[in-house]
Amino acid sequence: MVDNLTIVLPLQLILFQILFLLVAIALEARVLHLRLNLTRKTSVQYATSLNLWSVVLGWLTFLVLETLLPQFLRVQIVNFIFFDHPLGSQLNTPNPQLISIGIMIFFFSFIIKIIGFELIKQWIHDQPEQFEMSSDISNKRPGLFNQPKRKITNPKPNPAFALLLANAYSYSAILLILVLRFMELNILELNTLF
């Protein structure tokens, strides 16, 4: 089948995927640790599972979509993967199609992570280890002045919001890396011009 002389390996893809996974796990573990009152270890474990899970579902979606796409869209993807921009688009400028696809991927992965969080909780079959709630609130006599403070210091853990926030953090970091790469490419291009 491979009669051509070109051997093409997806090395950058693998390196970028590993880098993004590490960044996402680190950032999301921190958010989960702070927002869901999980121990550090549990939050890292959860973040790892969630991110691996969302990458797997992302891959499955991509591989299935690729077989279903009509040619003009497939050619766009091929062009993006080989030449770093959609077919016929202006080089070196942010592309609206790409940005909207990025936003879609963000919300898609958010939903995937909520589902994944529930599934993992079910699978592990117990509540994740949580910090013992600090008891300083209960020591105080509940009263008119204590109530607003109580809401701030003891927020009810909200997994969906925590996951949205975690997702936002990791995607921002990944976006930053991509922007840096984009700028570096442009600078290299300028260098070759002069």
Partner: peptide, 8 residues
């Protein structure tokens, strides 16, 4: 310039 693949 590809971010995915490299030619060997």
């Amino acid at each position: 310039k590809s971010a995915f693949v490299v030619r060997l």
